[in-house]
Design a protein around this nucleic acid. Structure first.
Lengths: 156, 156
DNA sequence: CCCTTATCATTAGGGTGCTATCTATATGAC
DNA sequence: GTCATATAGATAGCACCCTAATGATAAGGG
């Protein structure tokens, strides 16, 4: 009993990481399955949603918003372009950059994605209190900040 | 002010998903960077840790424990075998199956991984109370169960 | 003006995840 | 014993994410 209590703080930490990892993967898989029904993937859907909120971003800005690297975005956009969901447009005054614009079809799909996302959120979080959600959000943010601070330490 | 409060429940849900996704990715990236220092990746490290806890599992058992599909594990093991971290051993009485065993080097690396994982957990979760951790764990588990129930609904 | 440096996008290549499909072996019904 | 079915592992092909290096254009210092 005593040992259990003494060890429990370390256990709680390990368990927290485990359960966070698991629930995150499940969430990802669920969203992915839902958007697949309309011919998309999670990453592509995420990209379209960001574009709906702020159209005409450059690729660098979009990669930053999506928290992925630029080369990853390039191929994501290649796929979205093939599906006629987005267009790469030249930028006035900077021939290096390209603005990413939703096509009409892209905009329609983005609206559908928003609907699906809202639906899934309600299904998944239906019977959690707002207090629980807010408390967890605070925990997430705190950990996020701690990790950012950690990363700054890395010498190489 | 009023609108903010009225919308806050839906906002809290969206924010919860967003922050969960973000912190999960950051955690993944951090672990990955740390184990990379000893020539590993997060997935390989996870695999070695499971093998340390229960050596001599078959690939199917291991895939199940890691919550990945068998083909994914096959390639993971191919890589681990090339690094001389594991061995595929024949199983008495079933020529289809193979037991996965850690090499001496694999065991040493697994111990190092355990050390690193503990270190990272403490760094990241240092100033969160056990109550916060436990509350979040409960939230994660609840959502996990809800998602499992959802998946059962899917007709296709 | 010219040359160095910085920035935007791309390509190349490795690692991880999935589904669908294959081969080899084991098991059970007849 | 033989054939159908199930199971273990491997293979192929697609999607996504990363780092490193490249090419083109911009911007700034001499």
């Amino acid at each position: 009993m005593t040992t259990t209590r003494i060890a429990s703080s370390a256990d709680a930490r390990a368990l927290f990481i485990d359960e966070l990892t698991k629930v995150s993967r499940k969430l990802r898989t669920l969203f992915d399955a839902r958007v697949r029904r309309i011919g998309l993937t999670l990453s592509r859907a995420r990209c379209l949603r960001h574009l709906m909120q702020a159209d005409r971003m450059t690729q660098t800005e979009l990669a930053d918003a999506l928290e992925i690297e630029n080369p990853t975005l390039v191929r994501l956009l290649d796929g979205l372009e093939k599906q006629n969901l987005i267009e790469r447009c030249p930028v006035d005054g900077d021939r290096r950059a390209k603005h990413i614009a939703l096509t009409a079809f892209g905009r329609a799909q983005a609206e559908e994605i928003t609907r699906i996302a809202g639906e899934v959120r309600v299904e998944i979080l239906r019977d959690l209190s707002e207090a629980d959600l807010l408390a967890s959000i605070e925990v997430f943010r705190h950990i996020g900040e701690t990790i950012e601070a950690c990363r700054a330490d890395i010498p190489s």
